[in-house]
Design a binder for these strands. Structure first.
Lengths: 180, 180
DNA sequence: TGGAATTGCGTGACATTTCACCTAAGCTTT
DNA sequence: AAAGCTTAGGTGAAATGTCACGCAATTCCA
């Protein structure tokens, strides 16, 4: 898979990124690791949800009629299908989601939020958003909010185009305003 | 803890983020999920390393004399200490790292790269960086590189200040150029 | 100096995630 | 309609990660 593909490129020793890029990437990695840790911790202690639980609930909450097949759900949150399968079964035992065979295609399992699941998500979202605002946005100069959003959207668009994972169902190049 | 702190704000029902913020956050989450998936996949298939393996190796490679205590390593990459403990033991079996008691304080375990570990990391880095460049930077307009780096550094600084995880050892407010 | 508190880790039980297969439903051909 | 392909998912075992707890080295302080 194209190792050593940047042999003659104008890149610092060993093929690393240039200064600006290195800076951005290092910051990204650091933010990613810490933020994941903190979000996990907060959700767990405030709402008895893991971050993966929250990801599933959130994805389901924006689905049409709150129903989604395992495959679509997996594509949505970037998981292996079998992981979704296991995880959803465990969440069903906790009455957060419910599974059922689709009427149309009897291979597909439709997953949906239960009443309880929706309540738990909505309760959890309050504290989660509060944490996100505090950790992610409170230190961010307002004039960088726009550029950050733009930059990340460019990156996302590129990942969708280049990556191996199929695009999520509701993906659209530049529309905003979903997630409720 | 100021839940519901944006009551009168121009924000959708339920206390979510404002438009700009929502956009940035949504993009961040999407990038994070996909990128993690793709990096894992690439490392696994090209270098027989998981992303966690790579995180450990990378952290160790920038340590003083390639040695780091479990605690510092955990703080560095945002893991639970016991996770590091388990993981490092498994990596030692594969001859990627080596552990030994510190001479100074005999409670601490010093972890270091082995020769083999360093070689594996350097071989893996080539393809990994190639992937990062392709997925993260190829779609990013050059004029947004700077703002992105700046924005993420602000966020990181804030997380360090606000978060529960202790700051990494080599943390400095705005210096760049480490990682090799 | 002699506890008591703290710190740094390891461990073992348990939960989650991955990986390699397996089944079954739908689709396509013949 | 049967054979053969493709697609959606489930499954069990192994790898990985979490949590609660325990032990030993160090530090604090009277």
């Amino acid at each position: 898979m194209s190792r050593n593909s940047n042999d003659g490129a104008p890149v610092p020793e060993g093929g690393w990124l240039d200064g600006e890029q290195q800076r951005a990437w290092l910051a990204y990695i650091r933010v990613q690791l810490r933020l994941t840790y903190e979000m996990n911790r907060q959700l767990q202690s405030d709402s008895d949800l893991s971050l993966p639980d929250y990801d599933v609930l959130t994805a389901l909450s924006v689905a049409d009629r709150g129903l989604m097949s395992i495959k679509v759900l997996a594509a949505q949150i970037g998981w292996e299908r079998s992981r979704v399968s296991h995880h959803v079964r465990r969440m069903a035992k906790r009455d957060l989601v419910s599974c059922g065979l689709s009427t149309g295609d009897r291979r597909v399992t439709e997953v949906g939020l239960t009443q309880h699941g929706r309540q738990v998500l909505e309760a959890a979202a309050v504290g989660h958003v509060e944490l996100v605002r505090r950790l992610f946005f409170d230190g961010l100069p307002p004039e960088l909010e726009g550029p950050l959003g733009q930059a990340l959207e460019s990156v996302y668009t590129n990942i969708i185009a280049q990556g191996t994972l199929p695009p999520p169902v509701d993906w659209r190049p530049h529309g905003v305003s979903d997630r409720r």
